[in-house]
Nucleic acid binder design. Structure first.
Lengths: 186, 186
DNA sequence: TCTATTTTTTAACCTATGTAAAAAGATCAA
DNA sequence: TTGATCTTTTTACATAGGTTAAAAAATAGA
């Protein structure tokens, strides 16, 4: 994907603002199964996925829990670390060989401090992400694991080809055995 | 609570920006059990709770599901409706007699369009809310209902005095009978 | 205070999901 | 192709939480 298109796909942005962002960022290549944001560290970079996919995950009682998947065009922030400037609670790791656009959080902050348009652009993207997260939370409160699985693959069928069932089960909040049982019923 | 203090409790804000916000807002009183934001409607106002408490909830298969509680100092937006300008999926209702500070979403948008400081202030508040929501989501993925209940009341013991157990059970994503069972074990 | 209403608990039974271990299938390097 | 490794499914059993109905307790009005 082209970085210029990704930047304005969720909210409009002037050519001038796009240039400002582009001047601060670089493209990096990352191999499969590489952790680019680390639990317990204060992260200095944010990313956009141009090619490949990734997951946000954390360790809980020895289990690896996935709580976010990202694909081409998705933004990849350690929000917690970015906001608090404290160590984040999440890891972000590639699930395929990835091409990423990278920008430092300091540069981002600087741009937001100077550009009204970029500050509002970021505000909008964060609001959209908040609604997505809230909807997923409500799904956990209201729907069975079987329903969550069916809705996930009907909305994002490509997930089945790109992400292992073990990773999907963790994302759905169930064991891999349960997911296998659910799948066997249809 | 004083509205001036609430505005800067989560992120700093100049006196000038506070004045701009205050000039657009008014204080309203709302009786107990009144729904101020309606599922299926496009909402024109956002609120801050000065006194009282409220819940965000929606109807799912005939059940009333709570997914947010707000107390003094909390901000009360229909994010979904505000972002998309489409009908929201949530109701927000008072749980006590409330004193609210109210501002129209159009006025807010106008202020964000003109004020760099206010745009960044809103961005920060949204980021904080996003992290809170993400953490609650991770709790659903990783913790039992009993653990979620214990953590909720140890972090917010006042909830037990102000919100009925039926409402708390719904917020925890379990039936009231299950919550009662959990409570009886300690 | 007394009654009506609402909230909370208890009991009995049912279902979804967890755990552990083994089997089956897929992938990949040599 | 073969063995090594990783992923997925299956089986057997355990447990958390759901449902329904009823009892008990708390609360609000008159």
């Amino acid at each position: 994907m082209e970085i210029e298109k990704v930047l304005l796909q969720k909210h409009q942005l002037s050519n001038d603002s796009i240039s400002q962002l582009l001047s601060k960022g670089t493209i990096v290549e990352v191999v499969k199964n590489e952790t680019i944001i680390h639990q317990g560290k204060t992260e200095n970079f944010s990313y956009i996925i141009l090619q490949g996919c990734a997951k946000a995950h954390l360790n809980h009682d020895g289990k690896d829990i996935n709580f976010w998947f990202g694909f081409e065009g998705d933004f990849l922030f350690s929000y917690n670390s970015k906001i608090s400037k404290l160590p984040g609670y999440e890891n972000i790791s590639t699930l395929e060989r990835c091409q990423l656009w990278r920008i430092s959080n300091d540069d981002l902050d600087e741009l937001y401090k100077c550009s009204l348009e970029l500050a509002n652009w970021s505000r909008k993207l964060t609001e959209i992400e908040l609604v997505k997260t809230e909807k997923r939370l409500i799904d956990f409160q209201t729907k069975s694991a079987a329903t969550r699985y069916q809705e996930l693959i009907s909305k994002h069928p490509e997930i089945l080809n790109r992400i292992s069932l073990g990773n999907i089960a963790s994302f759905l909040g169930i064991s891999q055995v349960s997911l296998s049982r659910i799948r066997s019923q249809y």
